[in-house]
Every structure is written in structure tokens, then in C-alpha cells.
Design a protein around this nucleic acid. Structure first.
Lengths: 248, 248
DNA sequence: ATACAGTATTCTGTATACATAAGTCGAGGT
DNA sequence: ACCTCGACTTATGTATACAGAATACTGTAT
């Protein structure tokens, strides 16, 4: 198994606080999963992970608890941890949840956002359109993610932000191999959304966001059907290697 | 610190699977928190919990990870775990999230529910009304919880059910000391909701649920203001006992 | 009396070690 | 050839032990 570096320091963190290994492990594993280095369905052996990341089993176990609670891995008691393999139904369901939460975000943002907040949104739209114009796909995706996050922040509801963030990370994972599409259209929808937020029209904003996310969802499902990459390793139960060590 | 029994076996569980201690600890601690035996703001010392529950620190730590990720306790790295002390703002925000998620549940239930599902809902309403009639408060609360859960189940969206369940447990915690009120009115609203679900009127159902939960939320906040029990122990930093052991 | 600095203690973070349950492989019988 | 039973292997579950960080206390000086 390849060795991997643990992130030295996490970003938004109190100064000089040594970040516990479990958090670095959590972060590292999440990225390994997103990047498919740990494939869906794969059996995660604690001792292998420990060796791979250069830590003991304990921080691994604690990180696995978190990853499990957020739907990244499945834990079978007494058996082990497995990278979660989302089914198409589950992806769809998750996108529905996101849609509902983001619509609520938009509604609240319309009620709460001040002019400064709207300005932030406008700026992000400009960034996104610029990225589209220059065919900068990563920039497009980044601007999109930030825009959605910004709307949720402007809702002023921290709990909502927590939930949306959680959902979003999972969606982005499922989404990763696909992503890039629906460029221009999407930004037009964004503009309309922000108009509603600026005008303080809660219902309009919610509706705009819902239609926007619904369209994203449809487009996602469509793409996925054309490109049935994901649940390739559906029931791969165990990656048991040879029983006995290979003798030289 | 008083000693406490760990639940011997959990309910919905594969047969003969020994439930890991971490899950029993998680369950036990959640109940200790809900029942206020562990008060908001209280510093949870791992070794004390371990002794109290008769296990080692490791399962305690793993349970704390879960409890943290679900908002029951706060972890300060290098310092310790504290029972989360929800502020009024947070409770409000959580209720908003629940409102949004349950409205979505109702919408989907209207689209998905079959006659058998509607029958289940009707039966629960009957139970609730019976409980109201006989002044059986616990029965009322239970029927109410089951009804809401049932609606979410009928949505056919498992992911949504997971999220709603999580939110619900937290809400119920905040709610515990208050609960009992708004009896009859609430059940009338339920009936209207179910009518909409039966008729397959998604928007009406969603609206009914939203209004219902909004009203519950207002009533909750009102009650809380009259009865400002919760964040009593807001900043109690540490429950350090004596420095040196008391000599006899 | 108050502020500061040093010291002591407690707790967390992490690693190691052992017990147990789950699963796999192989042999033997039908 | 297939199925069943049994032993073995492996990984998880749990406990214990140790190092280090954070905090609270105490004593002293101003």
C-alpha cells in the first residue's frame, strides 16, 4: 500500500494548537476517498491505514467514526470499515435533500442579506462568468461552490450552514468524475437568484434556488447514466491478499 | 460520580451480533445528556466516564467522536469534551432546519404514499387524539413523534430520513423539559396535512407541514422564554475538584 | 492587594499489547 | 462434484501504559 503524507497543518485553526492526529487522518482519508485512491466498496484495514499514514490504529479508528457518521464509510461491527459505495438512488436522494436545504438558505438569505452580502454574491457571479468565458473549468467549479456557500452564509443560520456543508461535501464526492457541464445556463440562473435575494423576495429566491438545484440534479443523473463509472466495485467484500506471506 | 448501567442490547440489530461498547456508550451518554444527568456545559472527563460506565477510555473516546459530530458535545482539542450548551439562537436555527426538512418530507410523501401508508398515518392521528382525550401526555408525545417519523418514511427518501432523525433527536433534547402543550390544535393540523398527502397535493402538504412546524417552533420559543431553564451552566469551564486528595 | 512567573497536576493524545469474534481455507465425507 | 465441518488466520474490540500539553494553583515581588 502506498505511503501518504498527512496534512501538516489545517487551515482555519487556532494558532499553535497542535491539530490532533485524528483530524489530520480524517482530512487525509476524506481526500483519499474523494480522489478515488480509496475506491468505493474497498475494505479499509485499520492496520494498513495506520501504516500508510504513519500513525497508530487509535487515531484511525476515531477518524473512521467521523467518516462513518458523515456517510463516507460504512462500519460493520466486528468486521471492518468499507468505503461507502453510493447507489444511484442514494445520490438522487441526497441531491433532493440538498435542494431542500439550499432552497431554505435562499429564502432566509433574501430576508437577511444586506447590501454588502449581495455585493459578495455579485462578485462571485462575475468570477464565475469570467471563468466560463476563459474556459477555466476549475475556476468555474470553485466559484460555483463558493457562491452556494455564500448564499447559505447569508442565511444567517449557522446550523443550516453546517448541514449544507456536510451534504455538499458528499455531493461533491459523487459529483467529482462528472462536474464540468451546464456552464452558461447555470450562471444565468444564479443571476436571477441573486436578484430575488437583493429584492428581499423570499419565496421567489427559494423557488429560483430550488429550480436551479433541481436542474443540476437532473443533469447530474443524466450524466451519470451516460457515464456509469461509480458503483463499479459494488460488493467487493474483502481484499484479502494471499494467506501466507510470499516466500523468497 | 454515580455509576450507570450500559444498555445490555440495542433494539434493531442483527441477531447475535455483540454490539460494540462504543455504541452502547454512545447510546448511554446520549440518554444521560437528554435526561440532564450530564448537564449542558459540563466537562466530561474521559476517565470518569470510563469508570462510571465500567469500560476503558477507548470506547468512550470513540463515542465522543460521534456525539461531537451530531452536536451533543463539543470537543476542544487538547482540552476535553463538554456537553453542548445550545443557545436560544441555535435552537431556533435547528427548528428552522427541521421545518425545511419536514416540509420536504411532506411534499415527497404526498407524491409517494400509497393507501396503506395513509392508513398508518390515520391510525397514528387516532392514537394521538385518544391520548389527548385521556390526558395521556406521554402517549401524545410518542404518537406525535411517530407520526412525523412516519411521514418522513413515506417520503421514500432514506437520506432524508437519516437527516430528519438526527435533527429530531437534538430537537427533542432541547425540547424535553417543555414539550407538553398545544395539544388539540396540533392534531387538527395533522389531519389537514394527511388529507393533502392522501390527495397527492404536494405543495399543499408541504405548506401544511411548514405551517405546522413553524407554529410548533414559535410555541417552543415562547415557552422557552417563559421558562429559561436550559443554558443555566453556560460557561462552567471545568469541574476541577480538589488539587490534593483529602487525607483521612 | 495585585500582578506575574514558576510549578505542579490533571487530563488528553497516542502507542502498544492482548483477547475475542469473524471469516477463510482445506480436508473429509456423502 | 458438492456440501459440511473444523481449524487457522486475520482483523477488530478493548484495555493498559506512557508522553506531552494545557491549565490551575501558589508563592513571591512590586
Amino acid at each position: 500500500m502506498p505511503s501518504t503524507e498527512l496534512p501538516q497543518q489545517m487551515s482555519a485553526r487556532r494558532i499553535d494548537r497542535p491539530v490532533p492526529l485524528r483530524e489530520r487522518v480524517y482530512q487525509a482519508m476524506q481526500e483519499l476517498i474523494i480522489s478515488r485512491q480509496l475506491a468505493p466498496g474497498q475494505h479499509l484495514v485499520e492496520s494498513e491505514l495506520a501504516e500508510m499514514l504513519g500513525v497508530s490504529r487509535q487515531p484511525i479508528r476515531e477518524a473512521l467514526q467521523l467518516l462513518n457518521s458523515e456517510g463516507w464509510v460504512d462500519l460493520r461491527p466486528g468486521y471492518g470499515a468499507f468505503v461507502h459505495a453510493p447507489t444511484e438512488a442514494e445520490v438522487d436522494q441526497l441531491l433532493v435533500v440538498r435542494s431542500a436545504l439550499e432552497a431554505e438558505s435562499a429564502r432566509l438569505a433574501a430576508l437577511n442579506a444586506d447590501t454588502e452580502g449581495v455585493a459578495r454574491l455579485r462578485k462571485l457571479v462575475a468570477q464565475g462568468e469570467a471563468a466560463v468565458a476563459s474556459d477555466d473549468i476549475d475556476g468555474m467549479v470553485a466559484a460555483n461552490a463558493e457562491l452556494h456557500r455564500c448564499v447559505t452564509e447569508l442565511s444567517g443560520n449557522q446550523v443550516l450552514l453546517d448541514f449544507v456543508s456536510q451534504v455538499d461535501r458528499r455531493v461533491r464526492w459523487y459529483y467529482t468524475p462528472i462536474a464540468r457541464h451546464r456552464g452558461n445556463k447555470s450562471w444565468q440562473e444564479h443571476a436571477r437568484l441573486i436578484d430575488a435575494i437583493e429584492a428581499g423576495e423570499a419565496d421567489t429566491a427559494a423557488k429560483a434556488m430550488r429550480e436551479h438545484t433541481e436542474r443540476t440534479r437532473e443533469s447530474y443523473l443524466e450524466q451519470r447514466r451516460e457515464n456509469p463509472e461509480p458503483d463499479v466495485a459494488p460488493v467487493q467484500v474483502r481484499s484479502r491478499r494471499r494467506r501466507t506471506a510470499p516466500r523468497v
